[in-house]
C-alpha cells in the first residue's frame, strides 16, 4: 500500500505545530528526558528536561533492642 502523503501546499499536523511554535518563539519539540547523573543503582533523571534533578531514595529505621538492662 503506498504511503499517504498530504496534498501539496497542506502542511502535516506536526509541521503546522512546529510553525506555530516558531511563531511563539518556542522550540520545535519538547526535549526528551535525559540522564543527568548516575549513582549506585539509581539514575538521576531529568524528566521534564528543565534541568531539575529528580531524586530517588529509600530508608530503613532500626529500632533499639528491647532490653532488661536499667538505663543510667
Amino acid at each position: 500500500m503506498p504511503a499517504t502523503t498530504p496534498p501539496k501546499g497542506k502542511p502535516t499536523p506536526k509541521r503546522e505545530d512546529q510553525r506555530k511554535a516558531r511563531r511563539r518563539g518556542l522550540p520545535h519539540e519538547l526535549p526528551e528526558a535525559s540522564v543527568v547523573g548516575k549513582q549506585g543503582d539509581s539514575e538521576v533523571r531529568d524528566i521534564s528536561g528543565s534541568g531539575i534533578q529528580d531524586i530517588t531514595g529509600y530508608g530503613t529505621i532500626t529500632l533499639p533492642r528491647l532490653s532488661t538492662e536499667p538505663k543510667d
Binding site: I47, S48, S50, I52, D54, Y58, I61, L63
Partner: peptide, 13 residues
C-alpha cells in the same frame, strides 16, 4: 519542583 521518590521505607526491630 523536582520529583522526589521514596521507593521504600522500613522499620526493623
Amino acid at each position: 519542583g523536582a520529583n522526589i521518590t521514596l521507593s521504600s521505607f522500613t522499620l526493623v526491630m
